[in-house]
C-alpha cells in the first residue's frame, strides 16, 4: 500500500451516471488487476474505495458510478485538481488459474476491473470471453474498449435493448467450452454465477469499509476457510470458499 497525491488528468461521463477519471501519480504499489484505490474526498470522513480499471507507470484509470455523496463530489472534480489516494489495496485476481479460455463477467459497476484483467490475459496468450451486463443500452459502457483489446465480447441487458435480453447468467448458461471464470458485480449476480458456472472461478466483492487496508475489521465476511477481510484478504474470493 502507498499513500500519495494524484493529479486528475481527465474526468468525463461515459453514461448519465458512470464517469471515467484518469489520474496521474505514483502507481508503483498497484501490482495486480482487481485491486482498488481508497480516495480521500474533502468534507467526507471515510475514504471511498473504487476499483482500478487500468493503470500504467504514471497513470491509473477508474470508472465510477455516481451513487452517493462521495461519487457526487468526484463527478464535479476537474483537472488539474489533486486527490489523496491509497493505492495497491486488495489481493486482486490471480491469472495463473485461468486456463486457456476464461470468462470475464462484469455487471454494471463490476465491469471496470475486467478491463485490465482482459488485457493481461490476452497478453498471456489466452482467449478470454468478456460478458458484460447492464440494465439497458443507455447505461452500457466500455463495450468498444473491450473489443479494441481483441477480446470476444457478449452483452446482456435486462430490457433487451442491447445484446441478449436478460442477465449475464443467461449467456453463461449457454456456454460450455470455458476453462475458468472471473466475475465482479452486484452480489445477486455473483451468487447466480456461482450456481450456474461449470468451472472454478474468482469473484470480487463489495462491502462498506472503514480503512480499506485491513486494520478495522469493518468489512469481514465468513468463508469456508475462516473470516476474511474484503479489503485485505479480498476483494477477490475463490468460488469454493464462499458461504452464500
Amino acid at each position: 500500500m502507498k499513500q500519495s497525491r494524484f493529479t486528475i488528468l481527465k474526468n468525463e461521463p461515459l453514461t448519465s451516471t458512470v464517469y471515467r477519471m484518469v489520474l496521474e501519480g505514483d502507481t508503483s504499489a498497484i501490482t495486480k488487476t482487481g485491486q482498488f484505490l481508497n480516495i480521500k474526498i474533502d468534507g467526507l470522513f471515510l475514504r471511498r474505495p473504487i476499483s482500478v480499471c487500468d493503470y500504467d507507470d504514471k497513470t491509473v484509470t477508474i470508472l465510477y458510478k455516481v451513487v452517493g455523496a462521495g461519487t457526487e463530489a468526484m463527478k464535479l472534480m476537474a483537472p488539474p485538481s489533486q486527490l489523496d489516494i491509497l493505492t495497491g489495496l486488495g489481493n486482486g485476481y490471480d491469472t495463473t488459474k485461468s486456463g486457456s479460455c476464461p470468462l470475464l463477467i462484469g455487471g454494471g459497476v463490476g465491469v471496470p476491473p475486467m478491463y485490465r484483467l482482459a488485457k493481461n490475459l490476452l497478453a498471456e496468450g489466452k482467449t478470454p470471453i468478456v460478458i458484460l451486463g447492464f440494465n439497458t443500452k443507455d447505461e452500457a459502457f466500455y463495450i468498444e474498449e473491450f473489443e479494441h483489446l481483441g477480446a470476444k465480447v457478449l452483452v446482456a441487458t435486462s430490457d433487451g435493448s442491447l445484446g441478449t435480453k436478460g442477465f449475464v447468467t443467461d449467456i453463461v448458461s449457454n456456454l460450455s467450452d470455458y476453462t475458468y471464470f472471473y466475475a465482479c458485480g452486484p452480489e445477486p449476480m455473483l451468487k447466480a454465477l456461482s450456481d450456474c458456472t461449470k468451472t472454478s472461478g474468482q469473484l470480487s466483492f463489495e462491502e462498506r469499509m472503514g480503512c480499506g487496508f485491513g486494520a478495522c475489521m469493518g468489512c469481514s465476511c465468513e468463508t469456508k476457510y475462516g473470516s476474511k477481510r474484503i479489503c485485505k484478504d479480498g476483494p477477490v474470493l475463490e468460488k469454493e470458499e464462499i458461504i452464500w
Binding site: 467526507l44 470522513f45 471515510l46 455523496a69 462491502e207 462498506r208 469499509m209 472503514g210 478495522c216 475489521m217 469493518g218 468489512c219 469481514s220 465476511c221
Partner: peptide
C-alpha cells in the same frame, strides 16, 4: 455487515 457508516466528521 454492513458494520461501517459515514457521518459528518
Amino acid at each position: 455487515t454492513p458494520r461501517i457508516a459515514e457521518c459528518t466528521g
